[in-house]
C-alpha cells in the first residue's frame, strides 16, 4: 500500500448522505404500501373492491339481508304467486315455484363465493408449487413438470369437467358432497395456465443479481425459493388469484346452467337455468341472477386489473 493513499475515516464520515426531507422517519416504505397508495388512486379498481366487498358482505349476513327464509314458497300461502313480476313485496319477483328471487340470490351468494374461492385456492396451490419448483430448479424437474402442464393445457377442460360431474352424479344421485365436488373439479382442472405464468415470472426473477448474491452467500435452494423468489412473484400470484376466482365463478355458473351443478344448493347459475324456460314471460327470473354474476365477475376483474397496475414493478415511478 502506498503511503499517499492513506485516507481517514473522517472523509467518509463527513459525507452527508441523501437526505430526504422526512429524515426522522425510521420505518421504511415497503413496496406494498406504495402499491396500496397507487391502488387507491385507481377509481375502477376501487369500484371492483367495493363490488366484491359488498357481495362478500351479503354472503356473510344472508339470513339478515334476505326477506324470506331459504326456499320459502310464496305460493304456499297465497294463490297465484308463481312468476309474479317485481313488486314492493317481491323486489325481483318470484320464480317458477314461487320463491322470492331476491332472497334466493342472497342465499346463493355464499355458495357462489365458496366455489370461487375454493376452486381458486386449489388451483393456485397447485400452480404456485409447480410454477416455482419448475422455474427455479430447472433441468429435468422443469422438463417433466412442464410436459404434464402441457397435457392439462390441451385437455378440453369444460368437456372433461362435465363428464366427471355426470359420472359423479350417476354414482351418487344425491351428489357426492354437492358443491364441494364441483369446486374440487374446477380447481383440479384449471391450474395449468397459471403454473406457466408463474414459472415464467420465476425465470425472470431468477435472473436478478440478488438471487446470485444469495447463492454466493451460501443460502440453500429452499431458502432462496421461499425467502427471495416467492416474495418477488407474489404480486403476480395475487393478480392471478383474483382473476382465477372470477373464472371459477363463471365456470360454476356455466356448469349449473347446463344442469350439471349440485341440485341441492342454490347458486345463481342454477337460477338462470330454471329461468331459461320462460325468458319471455318472466324476464325477472333470469335477468337478476345474471346481473349478479356479471357484477361479481366484473368486480373481481376490475380488482385484478387494478392490483396488476398497482403491483407491476415495471410501472414503478
Amino acid at each position: 500500500m502506498k503511503a499517499g493513499r492513506k485516507i481517514g475515516t473522517a472523509d467518509v464520515m463527513k459525507e452527508k448522505l441523501l437526505e430526504t426531507p422526512d429524515k426522522r422517519r425510521t420505518d421504511g416504505v415497503s413496496q406494498w404500501s406504495i402499491a396500496w397508495r397507487r391502488f387507491k388512486k385507481n377509481k375502477a379498481a376501487l369500484a371492483g373492491l367495493i363490488i366484491v366487498g359488498a357481495i362478500i358482505f351479503i354472503a356473510l349476513f344472508s339470513p339478515i339481508i334476505a326477506r324470506y327464509p331459504l326456499n320459502y314458497l310464496a305460493s304456499f300461502k297465497e294463490e297465484n304467486k308463481i312468476r309474479v313480476p317485481p313488486s314492493s313485496k317481491y323486489w325481483f319477483g318470484t320464480d317458477y315455484i314461487g320463491r322470492d328471487v331476491f332472497s334466493q340470490i342472497v342465499y346463493g351468494a355464499g355458495n357462489v363465493l365458496y366455489v370461487g374461492f375454493g376452486a381458486a385456492a386449489i388451483a393456485m396451490i397447485l400452480s404456485i408449487t409447480i410454477g416455482i419448483t419448475s422455474g427455479y430448479l430447472g433441468g429435468l424437474v422443469d422438463n417433466i413438470l412442464m410436459r404434464v402442464t402441457e397435457i392439462f393445457l390441451v385437455i378440453p377442460f369444460l368437456l372433461i369437467l362435465l363428464v366427471f360431474l355426470r359420472v359423479a352424479m350417476t354414482i351418487a344421485p344425491s351428489g357426492v358432497g354437492g358443491l364441494t365436488t364441483v369446486t374440487l373439479m374446477i380447481g383440479l382442472f384449471s391450474w395449468a395456465p397459471n403454473a406457466r405464468i408463474i414459472r415464467g415470472e420465476v425465470l425472470r426473477v431468477k435472473q436478478n443479481e440478488y438471487i446470485e448474491a444469495a447463492v454466493a452467500l451460501g443460502a440453500s435452494k429452499w431458502r432462496i425459493m421461499f425467502r427471495h423468489v416467492l416474495p418477488n412473484v407474489l404480486h403476480v400470484i395475487i393478480v392471478l388469484t383474483t382473476l382465477q376466482i372470477a373464472t371459477a365463478i363463471l365456470v360454476e355458473a356455466g356448469v349449473s346452467f347446463l344442469g350439471f351443478g349440485d341440485p341441492n344448493s342454490v347458486t345463481w347459475g342454477q337460477q338462470l337455468q330454471m329461468a331459461s324456460e320462460a325468458v319471455k314471460e318472466a324476464w325477472w327470473e333470469g335477468i337478476f341472477p345474471g346481473l349478479f354474476i356479471t357484477l361479481l365477475v366484473l368486480g373481481f376483474n376490475l380488482l385484478g386489473n387494478g392490483l396488476r397496475d398497482a403491483l407491476d414493478p415495471r410501472l414503478r415511478e
Partner: peptide, 16 residues
C-alpha cells in the same frame, strides 16, 4: 493525482 476528490452526498431528489 493519486486521490480523486470526494463529492459528499448523492444527487438530490428532484421531487423536493
Amino acid at each position: 493525482r493519486v486521490q480523486p476528490k470526494i463529492i459528499p452526498g448523492a444527487i438530490p431528489n428532484l421531487i423536493s
